[in-house]
Design a protein around this nucleic acid. Structure first.
Lengths: 305, 305
DNA sequence: AATAAATGATTGAAAAAATCGATGGACATT
DNA sequence: AATGTCCATCGATTTTTTCAATCATTTATT
């Protein structure tokens, strides 16, 4: 016995499970009702299994085994589609659509250049953008609502395949006339935990700077709620620093556009290891477009940051 | 465009990739060479893709895209087989073959009972047994050489789905007239690291007892090579203890059969938390037989341990 | 209770496909 | 140049898929 279900049979079954109606399901499959009905019956006869519960009057009700078969049928059909898709993606990369996710602490600073580069390099690519926190992006990636992410590491990216792009140094900013202003470089242990202003929970940049501090020599503990300010954007943080509420860590890519030549804020590089985050790409494991995505590296080179 | 590859086409392609010869591949598929040749050509024409490199003389050489297609074809065919198999496994559980992996520190003590229970409860099941270290079992499970594992946790079982069976307490054994003999229960901090005899590397029981010791209050560090004895079975360890070379941790299930009423060895329960390992089942994630395997729980109840 | 409407199953003919056996042409070896 | 191996092609045959029409059963309406 080596008979396998045919792609049509699977399509008929899945359409029926979605429509719960032979006529509509047949319509979805662009066949007549009799064809779809016969297809389902063939499937049942070939494998000697009751997929539909025909005691349930005329409503479409699946047996428990039927439900299991439907689940596997979806997986199998996906596999068949992958065969078709891999041909398309390998043969004609950069010619379909790309749903790109990007985190809020990166998006404003590289997106203009990135979009320009993509439009220039891959004019056939239909781009759609989604800005959200890492956790939400990862979720959307996993369920197939997004194709590719731009994230900052370290972060929880288990389940996704990641690809290094570049490093982004952290700087410390402080109000003018702050005691630390006299130093050219600031060591992490010179900074007082309680005067640090950071982003709201969920932003990976907050976790990254906190980790950095914890690893700093004299920084024993950094409380999660060391002050009452919460900000959801770097712009707000910078304004808080500007009016003297504390100091903050800002990634290099944000400095020029957010601070520019403000005279009320002083920027200093950090001493310590590591004092940067890593910007990278992430995609679903086993994505058919992995090789396409890797080539996106060049879109992220020569950015003005 | 909504055409999908047919199961035959995929089979032909995979056979060809394995045989690298149209005639032999056709034989494997039980069709004529012309059929297989036409099938491959149809696949190429339907998707407008060059799978074979026909400039390569008469040898069967695949294009880079062809190799990608083959990879996806294998996945897709697997999916189709799953649809067939899920019917079989759900409709007639416990009637096919079961390749069971089991670790060396569990196998001798429960296997006789387990086999008897399986034979009694599931006489149609064809059982094959494989005793090996956890790491090797997990590898064989992942590549499909085994169906189900009996393992002891904690251990590295990422990638597999696990199922709790029962807990198995650790006891400490020592030679007669050992200083600790006077105590009814032994606290972990009463034991000297350097007199502990443990199994060779790779046995999860070694790691589990070591972890237990590390978590013990006064046990700062437990060297991995605290003495020169290495054993590959609990029986050998017990003999070592018997001649006064040290003390050892032994799981409850091993005590009766391995120690019985030996007068040269003293067995004592442990104080501490946790002082046990967990015996459980493991199978491939998304295994079609998950529900079948879960019912195996009853095979592991009422063991004489 | 009778009737109408809706739904899934069945049937038989037509269309599409898969397969086979025979044959042809390219290539490598001798 | 002859030979054998190998894959592609062709026409005939078989198998599968599909459709349109119709049947049988259930549900809703009168």
């Amino acid at each position: 016995m080596d008979i396998l279900p045919s792609p049509q049979q699977l399509r008929y079954l899945i359409a029926l499970s979605e429509q719960r109606h032979f006529g509509r399901a047949a319509n979805v499959c662009s066949v007549t009702q009799s064809t779809l009905s016969a297809g389902i019956l063939n499937l049942e006869r070939q494998f000697d299994v009751a997929i539909l519960d025909r005691t349930a009057g005329k409503r479409v009700v699946f047996t428990p085994i039927g439900e299991e078969v439907i689940i596997q049928a979806k997986v199998a059909l996906q596999g068949l589609e992958s065969v078709r898709d891999v041909i398309h993606f390998v043969q004609e990369p950069f010619s379909s659509s790309l749903r790109l996710g990007i985190i809020p602490t990166v998006a404003p600073y590289i997106l203009p250049d990135v979009i320009r580069n993509i439009r220039h390099n891959y004019p056939k690519l239909t781009l759609s953008l989604h800005e959200d926190l890492t956790e939400n992006l990862m979720e959307k990636l996993a369920i197939g609502h997004l194709d590719l992410l731009v994230i900052a590491m370290p972060c929880d990216c288990s389940g996704a395949e990641t690809f290094f792009l570049f490093k982004d140094d952290f700087f410390i900013i402080m109000p003018k006339d702050h005691p630390l202003e006299q130093f050219d470089r600031i060591r992490l242990d010179q900074i007082e935990a309680k005067e640090i202003i950071s982003l709201q929970d969920g932003h990976c940049l907050k976790d990254q700077t906190l980790d950095m501090c914890r690893q700093g020599q004299n920084f024993k503990t950094v409380s999660d709620s060391h002050n009452d300010f919460t900000a959801s954007s770097l712009k707000t943080i910078i304004n808080m620093v500007g009016i003297g509420l504390g100091v903050a860590f800002i990634p290099k890519m944000a400095i020029e556009s957010e601070i520019g030549d403000r005279s009320d804020i002083v920027v200093r590089p950090l001493d310590g290891n590591p004092t940067c985050r890593t910007i990278g790409l992430a995609w679903r494991r086993n994505s058919l477009r992995a090789s396409e995505f890797k080539q996106f590296e060049k879109v992220f080179q020569n950015l003005k940051i």
